[in-house]
Design a protein around this nucleic acid. Structure first.
Lengths: 197, 197
DNA sequence: GTCTATATTCTGATAGAC
DNA sequence: GTCTATCAGAATATAGAC
């Protein structure tokens, strides 16, 4: 963004984008710390020094990956008009970003949590729970919502481990379970869009 | 075990046990790869070389931690007389081993999965699901069981992130949700101990 | 059982040429 | 934008004295 000149530069390469893609896969499958810049660079067919032209630190690569995903979630939360619509939007979002992103966030949260974007992720997830949980929900109800959200991640990981299971049907089952859990979070009224408390 | 002489050796130290405890905490909080042997040794007040007397590799420390936990789960599965009893036993087991073990397995699964004990963990978890799910359960029902099992882990992590929530009540809520999910896995008969299919 | 000392390899990161 | 060359530090692991 800050390095684009506006017009199409003939010398422009796609190394940065490719680096983000490759890093996502390697970070997800091997872990952030266990993946070296040398490894990423080799996959891209460039040197480590070339990577340092695009990113100032290794952490910046990780942050770049998470940025797009997180902004998507924020947009979802802000645009949501009701719990059911939001959970469906979240399901689609998780699907769109794929198993590697899910793995990346879960398996490397230890490293992510200390980064600036880690605080953003916590905040976004909390607003997601806030939006999905009834106003004034107790911790048990909020836990229910958190489990409803984790459903898609568990399904994605299950599809990876149990390779004989059909991923698409697992996703569908996850959505059903998620909605079921969500409805249980508020045994009373859950028809209108209770945006106001 | 293999190095004990039977009688109480006055020169015997508890470095190995202490190393396992310290490593569990550091691996859980910082990640397996991000934690160095130097760090573990410093915490113990010994040198790296002393650690290598007790463990041949870094992976062996990780394996030693997971061994006790995993054997406990196996024992639970073999002794189980019914789904409800098993899930309660699993809940108690998770509680007993604490948040650090839960974090360790989840946050470092990328590294664990390639170890020999990683295969054991997968197998044990599968037998756990097998025992909890009705015979002939479809993937969707098995997913439900997996989510029921994840409940305790999500509760533990939630207690860590949301430090104003009461951990004990979260655990209680998790057990209730887990049982609720489990009952939904088989809408039909779930009274007798259907050990035979 | 624990130590000092060391071997070897890799890490993230920088300088400067092209 | 990418390269070669290099840095300082840290990693796992081993050898051998005590």
């Amino acid at each position: 963004m800050s390095q684009r000149s506006g017009r199409v530069d003939s010398r422009r390469t796609d190394t940065r984008e490719r680096a983000v893609t490759v890093a996502l896969e390697l970070f997800a499958r091997q872990g952030y710390t266990a993946t070296s810049l040398r490894e990423i660079a080799e996959r891209l067919g460039v040197t480590k020094a070339a990577l340092y032209f695009h990113f100032r630190t290794k952490e910046e690569i990780l942050t770049a990956i998470l940025r797009g995903y997180l902004d998507g979630v924020t947009t979802l939360v802000e645009a949501a008009e009701g719990p059911d619509e939001l959970i469906r939007g979240f399901a689609a979002h998780q699907r769109q970003w794929g198993i590697d992103l899910v793995l990346l966030v879960w398996q490397n949260y230890t490293e992510i949590q200390d980064l600036p974007i880690g605080a953003e992720i916590r905040q976004t997830m909390r607003s997601l729970v806030d939006t999905l949980a009834p106003a004034g929900a107790d911790p048990a109800q909020r836990l229910r919502v958190r489990i409803a959200l984790s459903t898609f991640q568990i399904a994605a990981v299950t599809a990876l481990v149990e390779d004989d299971d059909d991923e698409a049907s697992l996703r569908e089952a996850a959505l059903g379970l998620s909605l079921e859990l969500l409805r249980g979070a508020d045994p009373g009224t859950r028809e209108g869009t209770t945006t106001e408390a």
